[in-house]
Every structure is written in C-alpha cells, then in structure tokens.
Amino acid sequence: MPVAADLAVLSGPAPRRPGLWRTLRGDVACVQARDPAARFTLEILLTYPGVHAVLAHRLANRLWRSGLRFPARLLSWLARAATNVDIHPGATIGQRLFIDHGAGVVIGETAEIGDDVTLYHGVTLGGTTWSAGKRHPTLRDGVLVGAGAKVLGPVEVGAGARVGANAVVMQDVPPGMTVVGIPGRVVIGKQERRRIDGRIDLDHHLMPDPVGEAISALLDRIAFLETRVAHLQRGEAAAPARCDTCEEQGNR
C-alpha cells in the first residue's frame, strides 16, 4: 500500500465541517454568552451589526470558494455598507465569531480566525506587505481582541490569548497570554486572569501599564538621588570651615 494511503488510514477521515445552518445558529447563540445586553434571539438578529456582518461573510465566503469572486466581493461590499464591518470574502473564519458593536472592524483576505473568538469595535486584522500569499494574522481558538487593537502581518495569536484595547501586535503571541501597548508586550499569563463562571473575562480594559510602571520607577529613583544630594549638601554646610593660614602656621 502506498505511503499516502498508510497515512490516511492512520489519521482517519478528515473532520466534517458543520453545515451552514448550524454555523449560522452558533453565530447568533454565542452572543448571549458574551454580551450582557443581549436579551433574545430576534433582537440579536435584527439589531446586531456584528452578527449581520458575520452572517453575510458566511455566504460571501461560500461564493468565493466556489469561484464566484465578483458576487462574493459585491456581497461583502453591501455588508460593509450596511454594518461598517469590512470582512474580505476570502478570510477564513471558524465557529461562533462574535464582533461586538462591529463599527470599524477590518479583516483581511488571508486572515484566519479560529472558534469562539471575540473582536471589539475598531479591530484591524491587517497586512504589512504587498507580496501575495499569507500576509494577515491568524487568531487561534478563544482569542479576545480589545477595542481599537491592530494585529498586523502574518503573525499568530495563540489560543486563549488576549490583546488589550488599542494595542498594536506585530509579533507572535504565545497561547493564553495578554498583550498590551505599542508595540504589543506580554504582561499577563493565563493563570493570573479572573474567571467568571466559565465565561470570558470582559475586563479587557483592566490592563497593566508597563511604560507607566517604568516611568514611576525612574521617578522614585530620581527622588531618592535628590534626597541623597540634599543630605550631602547639608553635611558639607555643617562641617567647620578650613583655615589655610592656620594650617601654614602649624607647619612652621
């Protein structure tokens, strides 16, 4: 038996992708688990632009993968005009993506998003090169990206990681870590986060400030040095004045 056949037998059949209807139901149902303001399904379907954008992308992506590129782009453009969310139809999006508020979100063509990912308004998953091929980020399962954050280039954000509001990420992020700042820096590990009945932690604004902490440490050091200098100056002022004439007479 050929080697390829052996590998196929060992790996088993490829996992089946969920049907479109099941995927759409998951996109709507996940909102109630992540948005305290969500009340019932009809309200979500009618009033959540992030949900509208994801549902339109599911259809546009199917057209794109079927070779109907122009209808796919036209549908994504109409969805952008209606929702202010720009998702390229070629982007790969997993199950139960939630785009909260939706305004200003941009997802590029080669971006890959895993399951149970949450994006807030103003998020950009963008590219940094004109070259063809993979040029947009990959977000693994369970990633949360805060409002206004930018993840740029073919970087990978590991499963369960969080990107703080307004951070700019241009390097890979290990799984479970939290990144803040410009450029993004890892500041919190998964074990340090709060857990709320198994639901995601929405306190993405409660982030440490590594730059502010560094400045605070420098200010403390400057205050310490100023105190030392003042102490030395007082000591010199209290010392008896030196008399050169008396020292010369004593040497005679």
Rank of each mutant, 00 (worst) to 15 (best):
I44T: 13
K190L: 00
G181A: 03
L10T: 04
P49E: 08
L20Q: 08
R58Q: 12
L232F: 11
P2F: 01
G50K: 09
E156D: 07
R69A: 11
H121G: 12
G160M: 05
V54C: 11
P18W: 01
A165Q: 04
V229A: 14
G50S: 02
A230G: 04
R228K: 12
L139C: 03
P49Y: 06
V145F: 03
P89T: 02
A91N: 11
Q32C: 04
P210R: 09
R135N: 08
T138F: 03
A217I: 00
F40Q: 15
G127H: 10
F224W: 05
R234T: 03
K134D: 12
L45W: 10
L139H: 12
A217P: 07
I222G: 06
E192F: 05
L74N: 05
L10A: 15
H204P: 00
Y120C: 04
T83P: 00
G142F: 00
S131T: 10
I93C: 08
V157R: 13
E213Y: 03
S76T: 07
M1D: 10
V145L: 01
I113H: 07
V3A: 15
G142C: 09
S131C: 01
L218E: 15
L202A: 15
L119S: 10
Y48W: 06
P49R: 09
H101R: 13
R234F: 01
I200N: 09
L139N: 04
V173K: 13
G235D: 12
E213K: 09
M207N: 13
G189H: 02
F40W: 12
V123C: 06
T92E: 14
W77Y: 08
L10M: 13
D6V: 02
P89K: 07
I107L: 15
W64R: 06
G12R: 04
A214H: 10
R242M: 02
P174G: 06
H101C: 06
D197S: 13
A230M: 02
Y120H: 14
A37D: 11
G102E: 11
T118D: 07
D201V: 13
P174A: 04
Q233I: 01
T124L: 09
G250Y: 06
V187K: 07
E226N: 14
G250W: 07
H88M: 12
I196W: 12
G108M: 02
G114A: 02
R96C: 02
